[in-house]
Structure formats: structure tokens, C-alpha cells
Design a protein around this nucleic acid. Sequence first.
DNA 1: CACAGTTGATTGCAGGTCGCAAGCAAAACT
DNA 2: AGTTTTGCTTGCGACCTGCAATCAACTGTG
Lengths: 410, 410
Amino acid sequence: MKLAQKGLSIEGIQGHNRRAILAALHDMGECSRKEISVATGLDQATVTRAIAPLIDNGIVEEVGLVRGGRGRRSINLAFVGSGRYILCLRLQRRSFSIAAFNLRGDLLETNEFPIARDGSAKQTFKEISEILDRQIGNLKQVDGIGVAVPGPFLERDERVILMTESPQWQGFDLIPELRSRYPDIPVHSTHDAKAAALTEWRHHGRALGAKVMLYVSAGQGIGSALVVDGHVHRGAQGLAGELGHTSISVDGEQCKCGNRGCLELFTSRIALLRAIRERAGDVSGTTLTSDANFSQVLDAYAAEDRLASEEVHRVARYLAQGITNCINFVNPDLVVIGDEYAGFGQNFLEQIKTHVRATVLPSIYDAVDIELSQQSEDTVLRGAFLDVLAQTYLGSPRAEPEAVVAEASG
Amino acid sequence: MKLAQKGLSIEGIQGHNRRAILAALHDMGECSRKEISVATGLDQATVTRAIAPLIDNGIVEEVGLVRGGRGRRSINLAFVGSGRYILCLRLQRRSFSIAAFNLRGDLLETNEFPIARDGSAKQTFKEISEILDRQIGNLKQVDGIGVAVPGPFLERDERVILMTESPQWQGFDLIPELRSRYPDIPVHSTHDAKAAALTEWRHHGRALGAKVMLYVSAGQGIGSALVVDGHVHRGAQGLAGELGHTSISVDGEQCKCGNRGCLELFTSRIALLRAIRERAGDVSGTTLTSDANFSQVLDAYAAEDRLASEEVHRVARYLAQGITNCINFVNPDLVVIGDEYAGFGQNFLEQIKTHVRATVLPSIYDAVDIELSQQSEDTVLRGAFLDVLAQTYLGSPRAEPEAVVAEASG
DNA sequence: CACAGTTGATTGCAGGTCGCAAGCAAAACT
DNA sequence: AGTTTTGCTTGCGACCTGCAATCAACTGTG
């Protein structure tokens, strides 16, 4: 049967509980056995017994005593800080980045490397794998490699489709190539917006108790990812989240994707720059010229330049329409706007919120937070890390074990 | 901690496995202990031992021997056919229906009752509860009541919002009222499109192995529901699926919901009828008049009436745009179109598919089936039944226990 | 027609995990 | 210094599962 639920053997229960314990440890960061016991509902004794082999195997370690309480000090636990690592690769259009994390999630090292514009995929792959080789040599024990890929990314087949900006990758199967080069290391792949969303959820949404979080990645492209109860919605082929190719205008301009009036045509960086460049000469009171680039627009917007304001606010309105559509369709309680456009700041956010408020029913609007991402350079890389960690140590492949309430038997 | 996963005690494991077994029995319908053993991965002995108390408690029964095989005949099991029942109420704008199901999912009785147009909610509630009282009296053991409600339905608060067609319900809290009238019977509520989607998934999508199914309820309103791995996506407030209030035209007409260019303004039954009525006098070669009703349009469309064809096909195009947006956003592998518009038949479907094919990337289009619902009168009621059954017997509240793979301990 | 062969259901047994409760450890308070 | 408090650990009993043997019921065959 297709979707039959597996029963749980007496042996499986131990693994199940071990995963629950590790997930709790990951959720809470550094914490004591007692805290894990409370969080999981398991007996303290059970936690003690489960932790022991994890310490033996060098997955978890004791990181010191906690002072302050009344009685005995509790011993804080954490994932090991050294000895086991996860490498992450982020592929972008013009560059790639490689980062090393320990199991705790500390970013140990990150480097960005340019991709030669005329270089072949094969050449780039060679550069990537040389760096990975070196890292693996240094770190000794690498438990997994996480890869974040841009654009419409067929996760199911692990192929990138429609990567118009970098046609050289077309036909080069990065993930299988990595797998065959590192047969002993699990290689996991994700779409970069999904990775960023996972990070955003872990470091922000989770604390807010968001059940459904929509992450909107707005910049060069318009992507999105939906996080439901801590799980990224991937879609049947892993292609979910192509918000940019959602139409807000049935009779609009034809897009390369086949659709008409795609959100991306209104709001992508290219669209924004084109509009600004076209009007630069005709508008008075602007510092922007007909060859303005994005960082100039960011600055101009911050300086309340007239042209920048008008065009960025136009983008805000369209983006808000896309967000409204999502809100009505999937009913999130948190919307986070990330990627380059997060740089436009609070004023930009307020524009979006104003438009969303105007187009969404009050009882829905009141229940959804809309925020800017506090993103950093490593948001996507960290998402790739979280993906690998979840699949390696917490829960079953791409799906954590969910809460199962212990109950008295009937 | 908010979302900590619960560990599983030695007692809990029995409950967990019992739910897995019941879920398997429900999935496969009538089947033997052996088949359940294979489906769940549990030992035959464990299945035997788990089934025994279920038979004692009158939840499962043996329904006869299966002949045909080589060796001993297997004994088929099924949920009991009598003795325990689930009542379902479907609330519509002008009527309500009440149905009785046995645990096996057989529809024992269903009745529809009109709602007086000028009647108060209180009056209607009185009628509803009188009928429920009678049913409960007859059936003796009622394990749950499932309620399916139309329109934007705040599941979290169990309130209907924006029920413009039937303002009398505004401010009347149906579900709490039912709960307090039947304190011993669990009352569960759902949005009707979600209920229909669940039925569609159980009776069709599951067999196709669909991982992400989009159900589009097109008729008086345009609703939708997303089923991911057999679970309905409800959204933070349970409001997910308002596809009808998704915009396909940023600068379009203002909708009552606050948004502009809502899909519903283009495609709802009201919109379709209005367009047809307006043009009825001016178009030659049509049998439709300026007071045509929906069933006349259905007939005219089937008879290839010119006006009906034009307008229905226009609707198809807009609906296709909405579906394309969904496909790009959530990447389903199955789209099912239900409710009244399913009555337009294959020709209508082909129109939609043509438009979707034109607007979606080929590698995505090729991976998604678009079909009409084979719906019947009881689709929604049955969905309410499935909802109650799942929450009562299979899995934890609103989330079935997922596959947990037994593994050798490390 | 009896007997081997096959397959499903049941039962006895051994292994293993968990919770409870008692015991141990290490701090603060008095 | 002794008591109290709190967290970690260990001993014990209960319980569930899997394995394997057994029972049950049917088919096929010489």
C-alpha cells in the first residue's frame, strides 16, 4: 500500500525517542537532561539512558554546569562542537559559497568564489570539488553535504530547470555528480528560498509560534517557501514556491515561463531597474541615472529619492498583491520578506503592509504578522545545514517524527 | 517548548500501533490480519493481539472468510457495520443535510432540509438539533458529530466570517452550541471544500499516489483545499483555501472581500449567470434568455449552445489562470475540479487543461493530472465523516501518526 | 481418500525498553 | 554543619514486541 503507516517495534521505539530527544536538544539549544525530559514527556531516566550512547558516539557532549538554581546544578548538553561537521554549498548565478558547520550549527568557515561567466559547468564543478576535498581533508569527519540551488529546482529529480541566467548548468546533474564523487557522504539538495525559509523559521518563526509561515524571497527573482509546522512544503516535484511565476494580471505581458502577467515581471530586480532606468531622464529630483544599478537604488530609496520611492512603492504594491493571494490561499500567520528587497527597510515593509491590509479581510489580516527578514550572508547556507541535520539526526527523511501522545491503553 | 516532539512510552507504543493498524484497515477497506501485518510492517502476532480488544470493544469485526488462496482461508476484518455511528451535518446557504455513517463509511441515511430564508439561526439550530436528537435516539451509540460549513470558516475559532449570503448565522456560534447540547459526543468542524477534498483524496487521489492534491470547488463560490500526504492543509486559522479571493487582476474590480480582481468575480456562478443574462438578448443562436438559471446553462452548454460555450469557456480560462497560479505556488501532482462546475464535463475540462498547459512549464505540466471530480451528493458529508473518523480512531487530533521506520538500535 | 504442502491465525518464550521510585550528587538556605 | 532542594543515576517490575513453534483450514496429488 502506498501510504500505509508503519507500526513501531520495540526496537524502533528507542530510535524514535532518540530522534525526539535530539530534536528537542536542537530546538532548545544548550539544555539539561531534565529540560529534555520535560519537553519530550519522557522520563528523566529514559533521557539519561538515551543520551549515554550519543555521548559515546561523539554526537552530543556535556558543555558545563549551570549555576543559579536551588539544588544540584544541571549539566548542559549540546551537539558536539568539534569532530563532526556538515559542509554546505550554495550555488548562485555568478558565484558559489561553501561553508562548514559543526553539528551545533556554528558557522566555522565560509568562502565565496566567483563563477567564470564563460566557464563550463564541468569546470565549476571541478573548482567546487577541489574546495570540498580540502575541507573534508581538514575536518576529517563530514556527516553530510547540503546543497542549495537557485531557480526552479526539480528536487525530485534534482535537476534545475529554466535556469535562464546560467544556461551552462543545463544538462549537468550537479547532485548526482557530487554523490558519485563522495559516495560515503550523504548529499542533500534544496531550493535556496526553501533553505532560507527554514533558517528564518528556526531563528524567528518558531519563537513566535508560527504554524504557517510564508517566506518571500524578493530580489533578482521572486521565490517563496511555505513552512507548515516546521516543515517546508516542497510540492510533488519539490518545485513548490514559484511565487514569481504566479500571475497577477491574466491579460498581462507574456513571461518566459509561459504564463502571463507573472509577479516577477512586475517586481523582480530587473523589472525595477528597467522601470527606473527608463524614467531616469524624465523625472526631476532624482539622483538616479539611466544606468543605475541596484545598490544605487537602495541608497536612493533610503535617501527618499523621488524616482526610487515611486518605483519601489509600485513594486511594493504588486508584491503585496502576491502576498495577499498567498494569504488567502494558504492562510499563514507569519509572512517574512527576505533576500535583496529586505534592504529597502521598514518604510518598504509599511507600504506592503498597507496594501495587504487593504486587500485582506480584517479578521485574517489581524492574525498575520508581516516582517522583514533579519537576514545575513549565511541564511541560505544555514538552511542547507538545517536540512542536512534534520535528515541525518532528527526525524525520518524530510519529515520529522511528529508528536505522539502517550496514553493509557484501553 | 512550543513544538517539541513527544517521546513514546512503552504504553504509548501500543496506542500508536493500534492507530496504525486501524489506519491500515481504513485505507485498505476489508482485509485480513496478514495484510495489515504487511502494510504496517508489524508482526502478525502483534496484529492479532491488537485486533482482539478492538473486536471486544465493538470497533472492528470479522466479516467472513476469503476463499481462493492455497492454504488456510484468511478472515477479513472491517470496522463494525452496526452499533457505532458517526453523524454528519452539512450546512449550506439554503439548506442543511444530515447523514448517518457507520464506522465502515457506509452512508446509512441522508436527508436534506430547507432553511427558511427569513428564519433565524436559532430557529434553524432548533430544527437541526431535533433531527440529531432523533438520530441519536435511534442509533444509540454515536461516536462523533462532524459538521461541514461553507464559506470563509475560521476553524480556529469555529466561526463563519463573511457569510454574506446568510447573514443570520453571523454571531451565532454553531459549533459551541452543538458541543454544549451534546456534551458527551465529540463535535468536529470543517470547511466544506476541505471536506470534499478529503473525500476526493480517499476515493481517488490516494490510489493515484498523489502527494499533493489541489481540490478546486467551483460553483456558487470558488473554494479550494490542498491535501498534502493525505492531510488537509488548514492554515493558521483554518482559513486556507480561499482561492476565490485570490486576484488574477491587480487593477480589477473591487470585491466585497477588500481585494481587487478576485477569481470569484470572474468565475463564480453569479458572475457566469450575469454575463450570460446580459448578453442573452444580443447574441444570436442561443436558447438562453435574460433570466436563465444555472441548470439551463448546464443544459445549453451540453447542447453546445453558442452563448453558453463562449461564457463557460471564458470562465474556464480564468479558472485555469487560478489553477496555474496554484500549480506554480504549491506544485501539486493532482488537481481535481469539483462542485457544480464539474457538471460541465469533459469538454470544459479540456478547455481548462489547454489553458493550463499554455501557461505552465512543460516539465511541471507533465507531472500534474487535472481531472473532474466524480462527485455525488454526499461528497462533503463523507468528508466530514472521514474527518471525525480520523480524529477519533486514526492518529492524533488532526494529524495522523506518520510512518516511523523501525530500525536496529545503534 | 489419506497425506503432504501451503498459508493464515494463535500462543509460548525471550529480549528489550520504559516508568516509577529509591538512591546518589551537588548545590543553596538556615 | 545540617536540612532542603533539585538534577542525575540505578534497581526493579511491568509490559510490549518479534521470533518460532503450533494450530487451523484449505488445496493438490498419488
